[in-house]
């Protein structure tokens, strides 16, 4: 593979990960052009200084015609070689057909169109650690072959992520594209859809009494580094992207400057339901119940060996 990549298309640039990735790619002189896709109007999007190497386009990924015209128009003209798909609904509270269309159908359509594209040869999907099941009888260290969360009562937030992830995985080896799926640890940053970030926004964080699981969280910079590494790598496959910080939930609460209060687990679902109704927060305790009881830490050995990615940027904890 030559070091120079003529063009990279990034979706989801309205969100922090996409935006930071665009910045990082622009800083790389071996990337010819960055085609940034978002839902905002160009004048409201991407607070990045104008660059001749950057094109921003407002595209609704749910509309297959728009996606088709994007790929076989500007993307082909710019010679885009790599697509990094990071667009996914971030709220756990918004559900329905429209959300599914963005999370799953848009991923499927984008992948299908890329497969018959004349210049695109690599497709990177930013997936999520939330696709994994966390249970008392499963390993703490989560490798890529760990069972996925296929629980019938899983909310759409999880189901969609699993479905999009699996769709990309199923095409691996069958598709002419090199497909990479990065299952990224949660990043404690606003606008990322992190349930944990929303949980920690509350001055008092309730957690199940008697349990203090180990969690792993990532900084945005590490996630972006992993995406960058996957743009450049020549291998395909599924890779976990752990963060630098592995710590107990109680310590995360403390380091975020919050007061942790342990209560019986059965109280937490209704209490957080009320919080959601009264304050409009996104965090759903029921969705996170298992990982608030049992440890689950991403094993990043594969990403280190193949992509050369190792987390090295800690979360910016308010309390050292």
């Amino acid at each position: 593979m030559s070091a120079f990549i003529k063009g990279v298309l990034v979706t989801g640039t309205d969100a922090p990960v996409g935006e930071l990735l665009v910045r990082a790619l622009l800083a790389d002189p071996d990337i010819g052009h960055v085609l940034a896709i978002g839902q905002r109007r160009p004048e409201e999007a991407l607070p990045i200084a104008h660059s001749a190497r950057l094109t921003y386009l407002q595209v609704d990924l749910v509309r297959e015609r728009q996606v088709h015209d994007l790929l076989f128009g500007p993307a082909r003209d710019l010679g885009v070689e790599v697509v990094v798909h990071t667009a996914m609904s971030r709220s756990a509270m918004v559900e329905g057909g429209g959300v599914h269309a963005l999370n799953v159908e848009a991923t499927r359509a984008l992948l299908q169109l890329c497969e018959r594209h004349p210049t695109i040869r690599r497709f990177v999907l930013k997936s999520y650690a939330e696709v994994y099941a966390v249970q008392h009888d499963l390993p703490v260290l989560i490798a890529e072959d760990h069972p996925l969360n296929l629980h019938p009562n899983a909310p759409q937030y999880v189901r969609d992520r699993v479905e999009a992830d699996l769709h990309a995985c199923v095409r691996m080896g069958l598709s002419p594209l090199q497909i990479v799926v990065l299952r990224c640890a949660e990043s404690l940053a606003p606008g990322t859809g992190s349930q944990l970030f929303d949980y920690l926004e509350s001055p008092v964080c309730l957690r199940p009494a008697g349990f203090d699981p180990m969690i792993n969280v990532a900084s945005l910079r590490d996630i972006v580094r992993a995406l960058q590494a996957s743009v450049r790598a020549s291998e395909q496959g599924v890779y976990n992207v752990p963060g630098f910080d592995t710590l107990p939930l109680s310590l995360a609460i403390h380091k975020w400057g919050r007061l942790g209060v342990a209560l019986p687990s059965s109280w937490l679902t209704p209490l957080y339901r009320w919080r959601r109704k009264l304050r409009g927060h996104d965090f759903r305790y029921g969705m996170n119940r298992r990982r608030f009881h049992f440890s689950g830490v991403l094993d990043g050995r594969r990403a280190r060996q193949v992509l050369g990615y190792a987390p090295n940027v800690p979360v910016d904890w308010p309390i050292a």
């Binding site: 703490v140 203090d212 180990m214 630098f244 592995t246 710590l247 107990p248 310590l251 440890s295």
Partner: peptide, 10 residues
């Protein structure tokens, strides 16, 4: 040590 004084298993 996984980074905060704990190993990955706690």
């Amino acid at each position: 040590d996984a980074g905060h004084g704990y190993d990955a298993f706690g």
